[in-house]
Design a protein around this nucleic acid. Sequence first.
DNA 1: TTGAAAGCGGTACCAT
DNA 2: ATGGTACCGCTTTCAA
Lengths: 340, 340
Amino acid sequence: MVTYADVAREAHTSTAVVSYVLNNGPRPVSEKTRARVLAAAEALGYRPNRLPAALRTGKTGFVGVVVPDSSIPFFAELTRVAIAELGQRGLLALVGHAGLSGVGEAETIDALLSARVDGLVITAFWREDHAGLTTDVPVVYVHHKPPSSSETLVPSDNAHATRLAVEHLRSHGLEPDFWTGPDDEGPLGERLDSWRAGAAEGARLFRSPFSPAEASAVFRELVGAGQAPRSLVVATDQQAIGILSGAYEAGVRVPEDLALISLDGSPETEFTSPPLTVVRQPLHEMMRNAIAVLQDDGRAPEPALGRLVRRRSCGCAHPDQDGAAPEGPDAAHSQGATRL
Amino acid sequence: MVTYADVAREAHTSTAVVSYVLNNGPRPVSEKTRARVLAAAEALGYRPNRLPAALRTGKTGFVGVVVPDSSIPFFAELTRVAIAELGQRGLLALVGHAGLSGVGEAETIDALLSARVDGLVITAFWREDHAGLTTDVPVVYVHHKPPSSSETLVPSDNAHATRLAVEHLRSHGLEPDFWTGPDDEGPLGERLDSWRAGAAEGARLFRSPFSPAEASAVFRELVGAGQAPRSLVVATDQQAIGILSGAYEAGVRVPEDLALISLDGSPETEFTSPPLTVVRQPLHEMMRNAIAVLQDDGRAPEPALGRLVRRRSCGCAHPDQDGAAPEGPDAAHSQGATRL
DNA sequence: TTGAAAGCGGTACCAT
DNA sequence: ATGGTACCGCTTTCAA
């Protein structure tokens, strides 16, 4: 392994100067010397090493990203965005999955802390408090946090998202019912509240577990009982996908018999049958806000606004071109992708 | 921050002994002293710090995981499995996305190397050589590697997977055509070759780009031209999902008019309409093999065998219960999941 | 069994 | 502008 000492020797100078050159500071270096150092580093194939630097400065450039489990597409997407936004800032993502059961959450965070992450971006899942998390590293929650936590939450504007969906369905002449999960904490509660506040007389509220399989089953029961809704705003993609699946099996046509819009907007909603109209969460903006909170110890930012993406499930004849006005800097990830 | 020095002082001993106790070695420590150290560490809230340890030992416990982009479900799943399997061994995953275009691949790897990862698990995407990757850390490729690379590849048995799919469709009385991507490198080439080797007279080969949108478009064109296949083995989930979508839009019923099986088996295939029958890649086993290669500098392991998961798209009346015989240790992640 | 101390490789102060 | 060196916190040798 090539070290500063090697480079310094090769360049006939000291490790201090090597450091000044390779970090552009904090002391000035003459052009000649700088050139010699650069040449030596190049010649020897020097590779930067964050470890001793971190030991000395106390900053690793690592950020811990904790999500429940990225097999849920929404969290996979959140992770992807986190890695992208962190990478742009020279930060490295240490991804930890807390596991759906809640088991392993403390262990996950401990492991990340042992790597001396500079901060922690957490999307909370469970009720449980992260109280044990008495840590000196900054923590920011994205999308959802445990009720009792006093840390900053970086939210999106869930009421806005819900209104976009409701209004769009109304533009199709429909008055949507609402479909959500078993409880009403956090962002899903906000979505529900917002729908309730503007709901028409007689509008109905449906609930199912979050898994597509269970949402599908509940929907088929409703069809069987002649209770199927005509139009829905669905709180999560996973449920919307389940409903689509249930509708398909029950012979309910989408959007003719059931128009629906879901409120996460992870990438996979683009390729369901039919493609789901969604309000896409502004994940890039949320992640940028989260990083800003970590770095500047800022207070909670303004909720970021999601955007309606018209596809087929709402009844629109002419879907939006996906990616036409993409959110965030890495738009073109789903088009014409050549895999392998 | 609490250090060994603090713990040593509190326990009236030395940092050496603290190290012996907290690491269970390499020197023995008397029970009394050990107890004092443990109590002191607990009292002060000592947290392990991998950084100086790594500096000293040369082992960080970090493993770099490089995938093209986890917005493709197959890679998201691979990442998830990597994190799980690494975590079980006390290793931390540093996840890097190389980006679909190939831009940023070198930078991604450089960044991980600057964190002094103990090894690199890479799933290659592009043609390009990773030649610049002249690194002293062990590298292992999973699923696919650049043709010119001389590193170890951890494969699955793609021929076996294809045969499972073909034979299953034959058990439905169908002789499957094959659908794959634009080129035939790596695992997809093996899948194609295996199908070709056993294909009946007149069996057809279809190609489309990998994105669901494009696969869907190609399928609809086939339907329009009266060329739609009766049954298909599809090389990737993304294409199968696109074909499902195209079939839906074109009024082609699955499985009545089109029976298909796809060969990746990422989780989202469970909730398509109808659910996709797949040969699920043995990702856990592959990941375990990959870690073994990194740790033992082992040679290429036997290809791991995928498993047929019967769902609806092949025409089976009674789908397998998912998770009944799950692959790997973290099975129950998609059932009854309660999100938020 | 215990402990003093020499590193690991950058960083940056302080002196030159 | 340059360079000697103390230091970050843990590991481990070597001596006691």
